[in-house]
């Protein structure tokens, strides 16, 4: 299931609803991404004030569904969920949640990893960081490209 929303969400409720009474599920792997401060050891206080996530709604929905379908074709996944938020988020708030349920742990671990790596490079979201010295669009990271590459 895909949810693209502005609102926050409750992790335990989302995990509970994932199993939905399916007794064949023996493993759930999850990932939560949070708004974190910029890496700047010289400045003791927080640099980041907030972060705004922009997205391309129709394409986001389509891409996330494709990524989820791909994960289900590669691993034995009983149930999965991707939640991605947009709009303005404060330091420490949840941005993304990925959960995969399977019979055995390895499928859940791998599918969860794959979903995050592909989401990072395929889903049309952009982060604008609002700091005390101005606003900056976040640059893409080469390490994200490399992480996605290993699943090809």
């Amino acid at each position: 299931m895909i949810k693209v929303q502005k609102e926050d969400f409750n992790i335990s409720e989302e995990i509970e609803s994932l199993t939905n009474g399916d007794s064949a599920i023996g493993a759930i792997s999850t990932f939560v991404g949070l708004v974190r401060d910029q890496d700047n050891s010289e400045v003791p206080t927080s640099v980041l004030k907030s972060m705004t996530l922009e997205h391309y709604p129709a394409m986001t929905e389509k891409k996330l569904l494709e990524i989820e379908t791909e994960a289900k074709s590669r691993w034995n996944i009983k149930s999965s969920l991707i939640i991605h938020r947009y709009g303005q988020l404060e330091l420490g708030e949840k941005i993304v949640f990925v959960a995969c349920a399977s019979s055995h742990r390895q499928d859940a671990f791998d599918a969860c990893n794959f979903l995050m790596d592909w989401l990072k490079t395929e889903a049309p979201f952009w982060k604008l960081e609002e700091t005390h010295s101005g606003n900056d669009w976040v640059d893409k990271r080469e390490s994200d490209d490399k992480a996605a590459e290993r699943w090809k």
Binding site: Y56, I95, K120, P124, W137, V138, K140
Partner: peptide, 26 residues
């Protein structure tokens, strides 16, 4: 039309074209 394309992709007048920087979600 919601699919990534390369710059040599042929266009049609009915198309929805989007331009954006590298994505940074997640």
């Amino acid at each position: 039309n919601l699919e990534y394309v390369s710059f040599d992709h042929s266009l049609d007048d009915e198309d929805e074209v989007a331009f954006f920087p590298p994505v940074t979600g997640g």
